[in-house]
Amino acid sequence: MGVYWHLAVKSFQKHLAYRAANLAGIATNAFFGAVYVIVYTALFSGRSEVGGLTLEDTITYAILAQSLLMVMSAFGNRELSEAIVKGAIAVDLARPVDFYLYWASIDLGRAAYYLVFRGLPTFAIGALLFGVELPPSVGAFALFLGALALGVVVSFAFRFITNSLAFWTTDARGLLYLTNTVIMFFSGFIVPLNFFPPQLQSIANALPFRALAQLPINVYLGKAALPEVLPAVANLLVWLVALVVIGRVVLTRMVRRVTLAGG
């Protein structure tokens, strides 16, 4: 286990190297947060509630969503597919580690970095400028943290599969752009899923992507307490198992291909 912990820590450290880029990122996230707040304030005029959310709820939602974007890697992350295209997989195969867990640890380190150095500052700026709601209880906050962890893992398991397809397509960018659009939409990062028409909401609820934004943010806002959250979590755990199994199958095929055909 020590190896994977080490990997996560090194991955965290690695991201520390890009301070200027992160500052620019915080500014961008804060700016888009502000845009959302302005738009929502205009749209909410004369209405106290939309889809079960008040204006204050929605502002908090928007700021939290901006804070979590990079934690959840909502824009995708091509680190793995680039490593595959450049042939690093051959070197990594010659290491006494589990390739899947190797990349999972690296991604967890990345998520932890973005939580501390992107999410928290963005949230703090949003809170200072517009004011945010706090979770209704310590229990809700603890549940929120759990939901975040689930989201990070689901996000990784999904991206491992799409990134691995780089191996067969020589350039995975097209596919990654497409899947990222789907993720952004059905995760609730662009617009809260609460605002969706019922049919679209049931589609979104069947998919795994709400684990990235909708679920943790609604838990934070106290819109989803434990009894409502449990079925959602059960559904997501089933997804998670499926994604990990598919990811491992893809990996096995990739290894077979590398070892037989030389990549």
Binding site: H6, K10, P96
Partner: peptide, 23 residues
């Protein structure tokens, strides 16, 4: 032609990582 070290990390960090990987 290719390095197995982590590009953005100081050399010693990569060595430390390999220490853990190879126990």
């Amino acid at each position: 032609q290719r390095t197995t070290l982590w590009w953005d990390l100081p050399v010693v960090e990569s060595l430390d990582l390999l220490r853990a990987i190879y126990r």
